[in-house]
């Protein structure tokens, strides 16, 4: 038996991949924006927020960072309905990604906040700014700038990790590969193509985040370029 690498099925099935790419991008964008926003909030709580809020946030961060994404996803999709919280696979996937990225970006952003020189807080206070204003106007932007590369890498990791949402029937790129595999029995080719798609996506995402950083943090331009 000679194995022939055959991509002839692509002509018929490429729309499945296109749809998968759209879903993967949607999940990454929604998960990324809300997840990082939530992460910034949690980072604020852990670094500067009210003391009573810190332990619950710490527990959340540790729980998420020390369990696999897939188990979190299964728990939300299959487990939570037992408590009466039921949601569709896309909502469950979005929620799982937000919760997951929220915990990771919390730790990353917190490192950025804690690296802020003390003098900046003092200067803010001297200008009669309230603590939240100091955070919003003075601290957060340089903090994000400091940790932007780490945050970008984390977002790429989350995008690649989203491959498992196919397990709850969300129709992303991996679902497309599995779907085509079960119709054409061209397993290797289907996974090969989807791997190439993910590689292209992660290259684009990283490039896009570099540009975004370029626009968000004008002061960095002279330093690094």
């Amino acid at each position: 038996m000679t194995y022939v690498f055959d991509l002839g099925w692509l002509a018929q099935y490429y729309p499945v991949f296109l749809k998968g790419v759209a879903i993967t991008i949607e999940l990454t964008l929604v998960g990324g924006v809300i997840g990082i926003g939530f992460g910034i909030f949690c980072a604020w709580v852990r670094a500067l927020g009210p003391t009573w809020m810190r332990p619950p946030v710490a527990v959340y961060v540790e729980l998420i960072r020390n369990t696999p994404f897939m188990v979190q996803l299964f728990f939300i999709f299959f487990g939570l309905p037992a408590l009466g919280f039921r949601m569709g696979e896309l909502q469950a996937a979005n929620l799982a990604m937000i919760i997951n990225l929220g915990a990771y970006s919390c730790e990353i952003v917190r490192a950025g906040i804690e690296a802020t020189p003390k003098g900046q807080f003092e200067a803010g206070a001297a200008l009669a700014l309230k603590p939240l204003q100091v955070f919003r106007l003075i601290v957060i932007r340089p903090a994000l700038q400091r940790i932007w590369p780490a945050l970008s890498s984390q977002l790429v990791i989350v995008m690649l990790g989203s491959a498992v949402v196919s397990q709850i029937a969300a129709e992303d790129v991996t679902f497309a590969a599995n779907f085509i595999q079960s119709r054409t029995f061209r397993a290797f080719e289907a996974y090969f193509v989807s791997t190439a798609i993910y590689l292209a996506l992660s290259i684009c995402l990283r490039k896009g985040l570099d540009y975004l950083g370029f626009f968000l943090f004008p002061s960095a331009r002279t330093e690094s370029r």
């Binding site: 999709f77 299959f78 487990g79 309905p81 037992a82 039921r86 569709g88 696979e89 196919s166 397990q167 709850i168 029937a169 679902f175 599995n178 779907f179």
Partner: peptide, 17 residues
């Protein structure tokens, strides 16, 4: 809704998905 295996299919039904 197409699940990876029967575990997924049955779980999805029983949990009302």
């Amino acid at each position: 809704k197409r699940y990876e295996d029967n575990n997924g299919t049955i779980s999805a039904f029983l949990s009302g998905q």
